[in-house]
Amino acid sequence: MTDTISKSRKIKGVLLNILMYLAAGFICVLLLGLIGYILYRGTPYISWELISTKPSLLKGTVGILPNILITVYIIIMTLIIVLPLGVGAAIYLNEYAKNRKLVRIIELATETLAGIPSIIYGLVGMLVFVQFFSLGTSLLAGSLTLVIMTLPTIIRTTQESLKTVPMAYREGSLGLGAGKWYMIRTVVLPCVIDGVVTGCILSIGRVVGESAALLFTAGMANEMLSVLGAVQPGNAGSSLTVALYMYAKERGQFDVAFAVAVILLALAFLINMSAKLTAKKLRRE
């Protein structure tokens, strides 16, 4: 049976198969090599002192606790602002909007926002929040910039999950005499919690990995900030990614940079796993 296939066809087939396995193998080796190398270079330098102190010129020690805290502050501030806006926009698109053209324009704008590179966000954030609204280089300005950046993610995931809510739920609720807002609040929103959570996790991933947009908006300071200090305009601070960049490029302290890279990798892994878990849960329902 196989004899009817000419030799050149067979060779071509085998060749293409080999190439495909090579490509897939290359990707896996790439990731393993990357993780292995970063762990090899970075793990020896992770110490309790590194992650629990702030850098001290007097003692000559380096600590990244301020950067960890700043990253957490920025994540929380960004999410608190972007969640209501993004979920609200998704609800408008899915529940209220009747004008097809308007919906199309809003979706186009959302896609456009998703395609703009982070360095441009950084620049616009600097122009708008740091200078125009005179917040100064601050965590607040950085978070607001990231709000614009993560808005498309939240809108998209919420919208996807709104679409899976059966029409009958809405009709049932409206038929019993509920108002539209009451219906959305009590029937629709509880159904989309998982989608919103997925959106949050993806946004956290983007915020944790972001550097170019934060460089000119949130600044490069390594000072400890309290929760109250974080929300005040004018208090600058570098997130983990910006700190990595500064240690590697400006100060040449590669040990610290690799130690930060290990932490970032671990975070990326965690975020990836939790996104997978919530997505799986979503599919099962």
């Binding site: 990731l31 990614t241 590697a248 990326a268 990836n272």
Partner: peptide, 15 residues
Amino acid sequence: VDLLAGIPSVVYGLV
């Protein structure tokens, strides 16, 4: 592939 997508760009830069 998903993990590669999640690694921050500064980490790529560093390596």
